[in-house]
Simulated scan of single mutants.
Amino acid sequence: MSSSSQYSQAFHWHFTALDDDNFEIQGRTLFLVVVLFSVILLFTLLYLYARWVCRYRHPFPHALPPPPPPRSRGLDPLTIKTLPIALHRSSEAPNSREQAECCICLGVFEDGDKVKVLPLCRHCYHPECVDRWLSVHSSCPLCRGSLRINNTPVGSAIPHIVVE
Results as ranks from 00 to 15, higher is better:
residue 127 P to V: 15
residue 14 H to V: 01
residue 35 V to H: 00
residue 130 V to D: 03
residue 120 L to K: 09
residue 160 H to Y: 01
residue 63 A to I: 08
residue 28 R to G: 08
residue 6 Q to K: 12
residue 93 A to S: 13
residue 36 L to P: 01
residue 63 A to N: 09
residue 94 P to R: 12
residue 8 S to Y: 02
residue 13 W to A: 02
residue 117 V to A: 13
residue 58 H to Y: 05
residue 31 F to D: 04
residue 34 V to I: 09
residue 148 R to P: 02
residue 70 P to R: 02
residue 72 S to M: 01
residue 131 D to Q: 13
residue 115 V to I: 15
residue 144 R to D: 13
residue 145 G to R: 03
residue 66 P to I: 14
residue 140 C to I: 06
residue 35 V to A: 07
residue 38 S to F: 02
residue 14 H to S: 04
residue 116 K to A: 03
residue 65 P to H: 11
residue 89 R to M: 04
residue 102 C to M: 11
residue 10 A to K: 11
residue 158 I to T: 06
residue 64 L to W: 00
residue 25 I to H: 00
residue 135 S to T: 14
residue 59 P to G: 09
residue 28 R to F: 10
residue 125 Y to D: 12
residue 26 Q to E: 13
residue 33 V to C: 08
residue 82 T to G: 03
residue 54 C to W: 01
residue 16 T to H: 00
residue 125 Y to K: 09
residue 102 C to F: 14
residue 95 N to I: 07
residue 83 L to F: 13
residue 44 T to K: 03
residue 79 T to C: 11
residue 162 V to S: 03
residue 47 Y to D: 09
residue 84 P to Y: 02
residue 97 R to S: 14
residue 83 L to I: 13
residue 7 Y to H: 07
residue 101 E to N: 09
residue 116 K to H: 08
residue 35 V to D: 06
residue 77 P to A: 12
residue 64 L to H: 07
residue 18 L to S: 05
residue 62 H to P: 00
residue 58 H to E: 14
residue 138 S to N: 11
residue 22 N to F: 02
residue 152 T to G: 04
residue 87 L to P: 03
residue 158 I to A: 04
residue 16 T to N: 00
residue 43 F to H: 12
residue 30 L to N: 08
residue 47 Y to L: 02
residue 10 A to H: 10
residue 131 D to S: 14
residue 77 P to C: 06
residue 70 P to Y: 03
residue 134 L to N: 04
residue 34 V to M: 03
residue 148 R to I: 14
residue 150 N to K: 08
residue 76 D to E: 11
residue 15 F to W: 04
residue 144 R to K: 11
residue 73 R to V: 14
residue 14 H to T: 01
residue 103 C to V: 14
residue 25 I to T: 10
residue 52 W to C: 07
residue 120 L to F: 15
residue 73 R to K: 05
residue 56 Y to K: 03
residue 136 V to A: 05
residue 106 L to Q: 06
residue 83 L to A: 12
residue 163 V to Q: 08
residue 98 E to N: 09
residue 91 S to D: 14
residue 60 F to M: 05
residue 149 I to G: 10
residue 2 S to N: 08
residue 122 R to T: 15
residue 137 H to I: 04
residue 4 S to Q: 11
residue 35 V to K: 00
residue 151 N to Q: 11
residue 158 I to P: 00
residue 64 L to M: 05
residue 25 I to D: 00
residue 14 H to P: 01
residue 87 L to G: 10
residue 79 T to L: 05
residue 46 L to T: 15
residue 125 Y to R: 09
residue 41 L to P: 01
residue 116 K to C: 04
residue 74 G to Q: 07
residue 50 A to N: 05
residue 158 I to G: 01
residue 82 T to P: 00
residue 160 H to W: 00
residue 116 K to L: 06
residue 62 H to T: 12
residue 102 C to H: 07
residue 97 R to M: 07
residue 72 S to C: 04
residue 99 Q to C: 04
residue 140 C to L: 02
residue 119 P to R: 14
residue 7 Y to C: 14
residue 72 S to G: 02
residue 92 E to I: 07
residue 149 I to V: 15
residue 41 L to G: 07
residue 133 W to L: 05
residue 54 C to S: 12
residue 12 H to W: 10
residue 109 F to H: 11
residue 153 P to R: 00
residue 121 C to A: 13
residue 127 P to N: 14
residue 156 S to A: 09
residue 55 R to F: 10
residue 90 S to H: 05
residue 30 L to D: 06
residue 23 F to S: 00
residue 112 G to I: 06
